[in-house]
């Protein structure tokens, strides 16, 4: 007999039991990871951090002697410049694009009907893609921090007068900023994730996301601005202070808007999942 396919037996009283949810999730993740190959989502993740760091690097390379006070550590100012360039507009837009691109992998291939006809639950599909977006978001932030450190070290070599090589890197402040910024992106990430899944198009979530980011900027002076998930990365970026003595002051606990970001994250995912779970797959 041909070994490629077995003969089906006409008796079918028992079905094999469904794989447990964790096995389903592991399989979905293995599949989703493969699908990232050669995608725009992956390229965006790897390159997004470079733009703000390159910009800041060039500013300090040419104008560092004017901008930085002579005789003090240049790191706090450099880190703040980087973070504010990235955090105000670029980071929210990055999250909007990343989420839409990851979901668009399936939409472009008209693969939702295929995906949901496989022996994995809708929950596994939902969680797996969410974990992919969360992981890519984390990778992008980590690369951003790594690039800041690299660019600072490079300035130490190319512009020794700025003093990057003589002063210590404020690692603790940097790590707190990294963690809190990540949390600040979660609210808008979840909202965008649900919007992408509900509309299954690329244009709608990107349009919604960009509109929301622009609207947020206009609403910054509103007393409830801290409750807007799209404002959270910006609020975290500008929460960084530099003391008179030149020390980077960074909150070692979650700020209010970061708490709201977590609430948005949980709320959007819960509501979104309920909406998506019983939905008919027509495309």
């Amino acid at each position: 007999m041909n070994p490629v396919l077995t003969s089906a037996l006409p008796d079918f009283p028992t079905l094999p039991s469904a794989p447990n949810p964790f096995v389903q999730l592991r399989r979905a993740l293995a599949s989703d990871a493969l699908k990232l190959r050669r995608t725009a989502a992956l390229r965006l993740t790897l390159l997004s951090g470079a733009f703000p760091v390159l910009l800041t690097f060039l500013i300090l390379f040419f104008k560092g002697h004017v901008i930085l006070k002579a005789g003090g550590t240049p790191w706090p100012k450099f880190i703040m410049m980087n973070w504010q360039t990235a955090g105000t507009l670029l980071l929210p837009l990055f999250v909007v694009l990343l989420t839409s691109l990851v979901i668009n992998i399936e939409t472009k291939a008209t693969a939702w009907k295929h995906l949901y006809a496989q022996p994995v639950g809708r929950g596994a599909v939902f969680v797996s893609k969410l974990l992919v977006v969360l992981a890519l978001n984390a990778v992008a932030l980590l690369l951003f921090v790594a690039l800041i450190l690299g660019a600072g070290a490079l300035l130490g070599v190319l512009r020794p007068k700025l003093g990057f090589q003589t002063y210590a890197v404020p690692f603790e402040a940097l790590l707190w900023m990294l963690g809190r910024t990540y949390i600040a992106t979660l609210g808008l990430l979840a909202v965008q994730y649900i919007v992408s899944l509900l509309w299954r198009s690329f244009v709608v979530p990107v349009g919604v996301g960009m509109g929301a980011v622009v609207a947020t900027i206009a609403l910054l002076s509103w007393e409830h601005a801290d409750k807007i998930p799209y404002a959270a990365p910006l609020a975290t970026a500008v929460s960084m202070r530099m003391s008179k003595a030149g020390v980077l002051e960074v909150s070692h606990e979650l700020l209010k808007h970061e708490g709201y970001s977590l609430l948005w994250f949980a709320g959007a995912l819960l509501v979104g999942y309920v909406l998506l779970y019983r939905r008919n797959i027509t495309n």
Partner: peptide, 26 residues
């Protein structure tokens, strides 16, 4: 018993769902 039953079903619905950025094998 959707998940268990689909384990024994293969389906091709309308146009095949293919990821253009991946190879045939992928």
């Amino acid at each position: 018993h959707r998940v268990a039953a689909l384990g024994r079903v293969g389906a091709l619905i309308e146009n095949p769902s293919l990821y253009d950025h991946l190879s045939g094998r992928e």
